[in-house]
Simulated scan of single mutants.
Amino acid sequence: MIPDSEIKELREALVNSTRPLVFFDDDPDGLCSFLQFYKLNPECHGVVFKKAGSLDAEFLRKVGEYHPDAIFILDIANVDQEFLDKVKNAYWLDHHSPSERKNVKYYNPMIKSKGKDNKPISYWAYKITGESSWLAMTGCVGDWFLPPDIRKKFDEEYPGLIDKKIKKPEDALFKSKIGTLSRALSFILKGKTKEVMDCVKVLTRIQHPNDILEQSTSRGKFIWKKYLKTNSIYNLLIKSVKVTKDKIILFKYSSDKTSLTSEMSNELLFRYPKKFIIIAREKNGEMKCSLRSSKYKVRIILKKALQGIDGYGGGHLHACGAAVKATDFDRFLENIRQQL
């Protein structure tokens, strides 16, 4: 949990900032968290974090360009101390494994709950801002979480977007309209950063989820068109996956395709919950992977599998990302297999 006093502190910092700079992760949870912050304070200037690894000194350029009076970091697992040492008035809201850093106000529900509470950042953004239950639900569902407290209000405000019979987050993601919306937001985050931020700017003007789902406005039509373009690529890839009796579902593809490892691994986990899913995209001599399993503790398996391997990774207990040198990938795969 995050104490009410910290929720209040974050809200006051956001409301009182005249030039807030917001770094957010490039998934529905990170995006919806930013959009909720923007709803409360339209002065927010967003920067999508699309880089593998840490928010590092490279991003100080954005700070220098914007001259913020406060910096908010949302849903980004790793932030370099070098970056934090050179900025002022930084607030970091995350739900991955807790980090220890200086010169930043750090908020993470995993700390006081001793690792038991890793609710998505879009959930906490709603608690902070009180803005847009549909954005909160879209981000939470995209992170495989169905918050009962927010859902009650959401169902009242937006009836029909989640069937009342749906009780599991994975069913909400793949069997409801809000799940479709979450996937749409995930897909518009693909591509070049400028194109992504153009979409984000349009999203700040969206007032209702049906603007997108029913393409009832020009802005909604714009977002839907972007979604369909990536969705066509996704469908070709997901149809190429071969499933056998092996405990592992492994699919590899090359860098000339859009990065869809996370989305593919989520859908395959939904379809095959007893399998260990590995989707690996080869780029610049590295295999960039998304790993998922309901049955196995992915984070623990990944940590052991990386021993003696040229690579890195981490994430949640049942969902992780990793990057491994292509020359080490077979050994990495064998290290995983030995633990299943």
Rank of each mutant, 00 (worst) to 15 (best):
I2C: 14
L14Q: 02
V15Q: 08
N16H: 07
S17Y: 09
T18I: 13
P20N: 01
V22A: 02
D26E: 13
F34V: 01
F34L: 05
F37E: 05
Y38Q: 04
K39V: 12
L40T: 00
H45S: 11
V47L: 10
K50Q: 15
A52S: 11
D56E: 01
G64E: 15
Y66T: 06
A70G: 05
F72V: 02
A77W: 03
A77G: 09
V79C: 02
D94Y: 08
E100K: 07
R101H: 14
R101K: 15
K102V: 04
K102D: 14
P109H: 01
P109T: 05
K114M: 14
G115L: 13
K119I: 00
I121C: 14
Y126H: 12
T129C: 10
T129F: 08
E131G: 01
S132D: 14
M137D: 06
P147Y: 03
I150M: 04
K152Q: 12
K152P: 03
K152M: 08
D155I: 05
P159F: 04
L161F: 09
K164T: 08
A172G: 10
F174V: 05
K175S: 13
L181N: 13
L185Q: 05
S186L: 13
S186N: 15
K190S: 03
K190Q: 05
T193N: 12
E195M: 13
M197A: 05
D198H: 12
C199V: 13
L203H: 08
T204P: 02
I206Q: 02
P209Y: 12
S216I: 06
T217A: 00
S218Q: 14
I223E: 01
I223A: 04
K225L: 05
K229W: 07
T230R: 13
I233G: 00
K239F: 07
L250W: 11
T258P: 07
T261I: 10
T261H: 02
L269V: 00
K275A: 05
K275E: 01
F276L: 15
I277W: 01
I279W: 05
G285N: 07
C289Q: 03
R292I: 04
S293D: 02
S293N: 08
V298T: 11
R299M: 12
I300W: 06
D310Q: 13
G311K: 08
G313I: 14
G315V: 10
G315R: 02
L317H: 06
L317M: 14
H318C: 09
C320E: 02
A323N: 06
K325I: 01
A326Q: 07
F329S: 02
L333H: 03
I336W: 15
